[in-house]
Amino acid sequence: MTLTTQFMTMLSMISMGVLFGAGLDTYQRFLKRPKRKGWIVFINDILFWLLQGLAIFYVLFLVNEGELRFYIFLALLCGFAAYQSLMKNVYVRLLEMIISLVISIYRFLLKLGHILIVAPLQMLFTMIITLLITIGKGLLVLLTSILKLLLLIVKIVFLPVKWVGQILWRLLPNRLKKSVEKLYNKLEGYLQTIKEYVKKQIAKWKKKE
Rank of each mutant, 00 (worst) to 15 (best):
L3R: 15
T5D: 06
T9A: 12
T9S: 15
M10E: 02
M13K: 02
I14S: 03
S15F: 13
S15M: 14
F20T: 06
L24C: 00
T26S: 12
Q28H: 10
R29D: 05
R29W: 11
F30W: 15
K32Y: 01
P34S: 11
K37H: 12
G38I: 07
F42N: 06
I43A: 13
N44T: 11
F48R: 07
F48D: 03
F48G: 01
L50R: 02
Q52S: 09
G53M: 12
G53N: 10
G53E: 08
L54H: 04
I56E: 08
Y58G: 03
Y58H: 09
F61V: 03
L62H: 10
N64E: 02
E65Q: 15
R69I: 10
F70A: 14
Y71G: 01
L77K: 05
L77G: 04
C78D: 06
A81W: 08
A81I: 08
A81K: 10
Q84M: 09
Y91R: 12
Y91P: 03
V92F: 01
R93M: 08
L94T: 05
E96P: 01
I99L: 15
I99S: 06
I103C: 03
S104T: 13
S104M: 10
Y106E: 05
Y106V: 07
R107C: 07
F108P: 01
L109R: 09
L110G: 02
L116I: 09
I117N: 05
V118P: 00
P120V: 00
L121R: 09
Q122L: 14
M123N: 10
I128K: 14
T130C: 02
T130I: 00
L131A: 08
L131D: 01
L132P: 02
G136L: 03
G138F: 06
L140V: 02
L140P: 00
L140W: 06
V141H: 12
V141F: 13
T144Q: 10
I146D: 02
L147Q: 06
K148Y: 09
L149I: 01
L151D: 08
L152F: 08
V154Y: 07
V154C: 05
V154K: 13
F158Q: 15
V161S: 02
W163G: 12
W163R: 15
W163S: 12
I167F: 08
L168P: 00
L168G: 04
R170Y: 14
R170I: 07
R170F: 14
L171E: 10
L172P: 00
P173S: 08
N174E: 12
K177W: 05
S179P: 00
E181K: 11
K182R: 13
L183Q: 12
Y184P: 00
Y184Q: 04
Y184R: 04
K186Y: 04
K186N: 03
L191E: 04
I194W: 13
I194C: 07
K195R: 12
Y197R: 15
Y197S: 13
V198C: 09
V198S: 15
V198G: 06
K200N: 11
A203N: 09
W205Y: 15
W205H: 14
K206S: 07
K206H: 14
K207Q: 15
K208E: 12
E209V: 14
